[in-house]
């Protein structure tokens, strides 16, 4: 089972990211569950959402406390919330940032967790380019699909078009395509 925890701020589409992951997994014939960390938070406050993906029914209802994948949609959270809590030693971190992981003040942490793979890429810039809105979620989902192969590109596109019908969907598909290629062609991270 893949257990993903997504960190961001209210208004950054964190819950949508979790839903896109689950919808794409469903389209790929897998079983998925997405849910938010239920706050009464307003725009800008730290929020979390979760997604589980498996090939058999998912019964658990507890929040993801031991993720094997982390999305960090807002790197300003790194020093505000304990985002890495419970992350598997072989975990994957998808980071939305124009900076490399080393430049984010994570050097010590990286040394302590040699097997964790960190992929830092400018997901919100890609969205800004295509949508005129710097919202990282779609790029993060596509980037995750690209590095892990856990979701097919087609399923991600399908999920996006289902969530955002019409023109917005088409633009978001472009964001996803670019993020997909960006992450696979740039040997980013680690």
């Amino acid at each position: 089972m893949i257990e993903i925890r997504i960190h961001g701020r209210g208004g950054q589409g964190v819950v949508t990211a979790a839903e896109l992951l689950a919808a794409a997994a469903f389209h790929d014939g897998k079983v998925a569950q997405a849910f938010p960390s239920f706050g009464s938070e307003r725009t800008g406050a730290p929020v979390t959402a979760f997604c589980r993906i498996d090939t058999k029914p998912i019964r658990s209802r507890e929040p993801v406390t031991h993720p094997n994948v982390l999305f960090i949609q807002d790197s300003t959270l790194l020093h505000q919330v304990n985002v890495f809590s419970g992350l598997s030693d072989q975990g994957i971190v998808m980071m939305n940032s124009t900076r490399k992981a080393e430049e984010l003040g994570l050097n010590d942490w990286i040394v302590q967790h040699p097997e964790v793979e960190i992929y830092s890429f400018p997901a919100s810039d890609l969205a800004e380019k295509h949508l005129g809105r710097s919202i990282a979620n779609v790029g993060m989902v596509a980037g995750f699909a690209s590095v892990t192969g856990a979701l097919t590109k087609e399923a991600v596109q399908y999920a996006i078009q289902e969530k955002f019908p019409g023109k917005l969907g088409a633009l978001n598909v472009q964001v996803a395509a670019e993020a997909f290629d960006y992450v696979s062609s740039h040997k980013i991270g680690v």
Partner: peptide, 12 residues
């Protein structure tokens, strides 16, 4: 039905 746990869960 459990609030949030079910109402806000996105599942099959």
């Amino acid at each position: 039905m459990d609030g949030y746990i079910l109402t806000h869960a996105f599942e099959e």
